[in-house]
Amino acid sequence: MSEPFFALSGYDSRRGRGSHEAGRPQTFAVPSLLRSLLSEHLDPGYAAAAARRDQQPPGTAAGGRAAGWAWEALAALLIATVFAVAVAQARSVEPGVRDAQQVLAANVRSAESTTGNLTDKRDTLTDRVYDLRRHRLADDAEGQRLLAGLDKLSLEGASASVTGPGLLVTVTDPGIGRNLSDASKQRVSGSQQIILDRDLQLVVNSLWASGAEAISVGDVRIGPNVTIRQAGGAILVDNKPISSPYSVRAIGPPAELRDAFDRTPGLYRLRLLEMSYGVGVRVDGRSGPDLVLPAGAVRDIRYAKQIGAS
Rank of each mutant, 00 (worst) to 15 (best):
P95Y: 02
A76Q: 14
Q56T: 14
R91I: 01
V93W: 07
A47H: 12
A80D: 01
A76W: 15
R52Y: 05
V82P: 00
W71Q: 14
P58H: 12
A51P: 01
V82F: 03
A51Q: 14
R91F: 00
T81E: 12
I79H: 05
A51Y: 03
V85G: 03
A80R: 12
A76E: 12
R65W: 04
G45V: 14
A75M: 04
G59P: 04
A67P: 00
D54W: 04
Q55F: 02
P95G: 02
V82K: 04
A84H: 01
R53I: 08
P58L: 08
Q55I: 05
D54F: 05
A67Q: 10
P95A: 02
A73P: 01
W71L: 14
A66M: 06
R52A: 13
Y46K: 07
G45F: 10
A75G: 03
P44E: 13
P58A: 15
A90N: 10
A47L: 15
A61S: 06
E94Y: 10
A51G: 08
Y46F: 09
P44R: 13
A75V: 06
V82M: 10
A84V: 03
T81Q: 14
A80F: 14
G68I: 03
T81W: 11
A66G: 07
A75F: 09
L78G: 13
A50D: 08
Y46N: 12
D54T: 10
A73N: 11
A75N: 04
P95R: 07
G63E: 11
F83E: 03
V85C: 03
P57I: 01
A66W: 05
